[in-house]
Amino acid sequence: MNVFRLLGDMSHLLAILILLLKMWKTRSCAGISGKTQILFALVFTTRYLDLFSSFISIYNTTMKLFFIASSYFTIFLMYSKFKATYDSNHDSFRMEFLVVPVGGLAFLVNHEFLPLEILWTFSIYLESVAILPQLFMVSKTGEAETITSHYLFALGSYRLLYIFNWVYRYYFDGFFDLIAVVAGCVQTILYCDFFYLYITKVLKGKKLSLPA
């Protein structure tokens, strides 16, 4: 565990807490893509099946359980408790366009052709593109609430920090996982446009809005 990895995890945790807090305080999930949240639940479920097969640390287990539980709780809030505020008309990205190709790729390009390994690979690939429905929703409505922008910034920072973590691990631990690194870079690149808008607008006190 190095400092980049820890900051990355904390950033990920912060993102989830911001999202939950936003929904709980405003009693609304307006502007949040339910599709992206379903994909994240699928990501955590398929990746953390090793909870049943191997124990790494209390930290590792706790975080995994929190990520899984919070993702299903988010879905419950969006599709049940605060259903009336869910903006389904603007959340029109088709999940199968991501899940099907990613599933195929996980079968073809993996470290080892074993069920758990293929599911892990699937989750890594899926996570890299799971934010697309959310970004699509922001671009469709042309704006995002400031709190939603903070959520997205924390979520994007998490994967950027993981890249620094991989660079560190490559040089100091001799560790390199090509699948995780490539997918992580793709994931981070998807946030670049958003990072630019966040820094030039949201940090200057303006609401994130896209040019018409």
Partner: peptide
């Protein structure tokens, strides 16, 4: 080579 049994990253 990648160690498959030790996925400590989240």
């Amino acid at each position: 080579d990648v160690e498959l049994d030790d996925k400590d990253e989240l």
